[in-house]
């Protein structure tokens, strides 16, 4: 008898995710929890949660946690990291944000944390819309995407272009690692886990800002089934948002 899988220890007992059926947030949280377990980080970690669908994260993870005002997670994480450092303690600090939080309202804080080489990790769930408020167009909505505020589809003339967050973060000299991953099949889920692990390890090694953008489904707001949503990511979204590692300080 060998247990191949069990619920990660970092996930609170009797947690019940409040996400819509088939939402990839749950998979991403599970991966984060698994990596924290594997690296033995749970007792030394402080999580910065954000506004959006990920807002209840602290109810699912057995981690010390603070909620940041919308978009300010990387700034709050900076304060936490620095404050412990002056007390002579290295804490593991990461943010878990949506694309609206990280790349729209919080782009300033996000980019500057990367530019400072702030030794924190940011996980950004990119589901190409503002999910919690009912699927409005966000900075990550792709051209042609129909949302509740772009009923005719996003067009570049009126709404401009979507932001390729992982590529932008990779351009910052303080970034140690920047990758975009997806969760539409088992192979990619495992790749995503590896990327999260690498990002976390780079922080442990003090290499600077590490970042993973996770392309995630939003079946409810996309008006698709969970499976169709995954197909959309694989066949459509990856054209705008290619998967891969855009910066790895150890390979550059």
């Amino acid at each position: 008898m060998q247990t191949i899988f069990e619920t990660p220890k970092t996930i609170k007992e009797n947690s019940r995710f409040s996400f819509c059926p088939g939402c990839d947030h749950g998979v991403a949280i599970k991966l984060v929890a698994q990596v924290l377990d594997e690296l033995g980080l749970q007792e030394n970690t402080i999580l910065v949660a954000s506004s959006g669908c990920s807002v209840n994260l602290y109810d699912y993870l057995e981690l010390d946690c603070i909620e940041a005002p919308h978009g300010r997670a990387c700034a709050v994480a900076t304060g936490i990291k620095r404050a412990h450092k002056v007390q002579g303690k290295e804490k593991f600090v990461f943010t878990y944000q949506g694309d609206g939080d990280f790349a729209s309202i919080g782009l300033g804080e996000s980019l500057h944390s990367a530019l400072r080489g702030e030794n924190i990790t940011a996980i950004c769930i990119n589901n190409t819309n503002f999910g919690m408020t009912g699927g409005q167009m966000g900075p990550t909505s792709v051209l042609g995407q129909i949302t509740s505020t772009s009923p005719q589809g996003r067009n570049k003339e009126t709404h401009g272009f979507p932001i390729k967050t992982a590529e932008h973060i990779a351009l910052c000299d303080g970034t140690s690692f920047s990758a975009r991953v997806a969760l539409f099949d088992v192979k990619n889920i495992l790749k995503a886990k590896n990327a999260i692990k690498k990002a976390f390890e780079y922080q442990k090694q003090g290499l600077g800002f590490s970042f993973v953008e996770i392309l995630a489904s939003c079946p409810t707001n996309w008006r698709l089934s969970p499976l169709e949503s995954h197909n959309k990511i694989e066949n459509e979204l990856t054209k705008t948002y290619p998967l891969g590692i855009f910066k790895d300080i150890k390979n550059d």
């Binding site: 191949i4 069990e6 619920t7 947690s15 995710f17 749950g26 998979v27 088992v186």
Partner: peptide, 12 residues
Amino acid sequence: LVCPDIAITKVV
């Protein structure tokens, strides 16, 4: 691995 709701709690 694919279950988004940690409803599959164990694999043995």
